[in-house]
Amino acid sequence: MQVKDNTFLITGAASGLGAATAERLVAGGGRVVLCDLSDAVEAHAERLGEAAQAVRGDVTSADDIQAAVDAAVALGGDRGLAGVVHCAGVVSVAKVLDREGHPADLEAYARTVQINLVGTFNVMRLAAAAMARNAPGVDGERGVLINTASVAAFDGQVGQCAYSASKAGVVGMSLPAARELSRHGIRVMAIAPGVFETPMMSDIPEEAVEALSASVPFPKRLGKPDEFARLAEQIVTNPMLNGEVIRLDGGIRMQ
């Protein structure tokens, strides 16, 4: 599959990893539908020009994501929806027991899992249904689904029970989904980023950011959103990448 002349749905596209991915795919000659809850998604689509459309949507809503998928299919014309890069998600921090021994809030835990894991499955199932209707390309390929996990799925830190569990679920879905959807010619991949320069990092104190940067073996800095976008582009264009989770983290192992 090539980026040029194909259409992709990007979730979490108003900023960070999703915004950078949309920019890269448009620069490569692709078309994109940007989906996000933020008002900023419309402004970002305008900056990208005629190759981009914005759809306001919640990844946990079947109706919202169906509308985004339908928009991408329409934008794709005869080619339909070629790929998805699912970047939408939330970070949450809460200990099982706080300093006073009070248990964590169950609703907050469920919200993290609902957005990060159930939301991922919602996007995947609706996009796959659309891709399965595409005419097969080289090797019978009809589409590619790229989900976003996290290194926290493998080495989560204290306070990350909800976040780590939700991202571990994304990892766990990758291989069975790839096996199931192979008969439709749809690939499934996941990227597990380390610590990246995204709006999620904006509330972290500077000294904490410096400590995180120092803990990366090489390069000793936070990842840049375009580095995520470059890997997503490589996954799109390399048909042998399937059923795998790729850590993109500079070698970091969280403590």
Rank of each mutant, 00 (worst) to 15 (best):
D70H: 10
S182C: 10
V59Y: 04
L212E: 10
V195N: 10
Q53A: 15
V195K: 04
A208I: 04
D226P: 04
S61E: 10
P225Q: 08
R179V: 11
A178C: 08
R133N: 10
R24G: 11
Q114N: 12
A135R: 02
F218R: 04
G18K: 05
A94D: 15
L241M: 15
A19N: 03
V118E: 11
C35W: 01
A177V: 01
V113I: 15
P103M: 06
L241T: 03
A68Q: 01
A68E: 12
E141H: 04
V195D: 04
L145H: 01
V33P: 01
L25K: 06
V170N: 00
A152S: 11
N134T: 03
A211V: 10
R133G: 04
V93G: 02
S164E: 07
I115S: 07
A82G: 11
V209D: 04
T237D: 13
D58W: 04
H86F: 04
A149K: 03
L181N: 02
D155F: 12
G83R: 00
L106N: 03
T7F: 02
D226E: 15
N6E: 14
M1R: 06
S166Y: 02
E50G: 14
V245R: 03
A229G: 06
E23N: 12
V144W: 01
G251R: 13
A110Y: 12
K95A: 14
I65S: 02
N6Q: 14
I146V: 12
S215H: 06
A192M: 00
R253P: 01
A192C: 01
M254H: 15
E50Q: 13
V209E: 05
G156P: 09
T112V: 13
R183I: 06
E42K: 13
A152D: 07
M254T: 08
R99E: 13
G18D: 06
D249Y: 00
V91D: 07
L241E: 01
I204L: 14
V170D: 00
G143Q: 02
A82M: 03
R79H: 09
P219I: 11
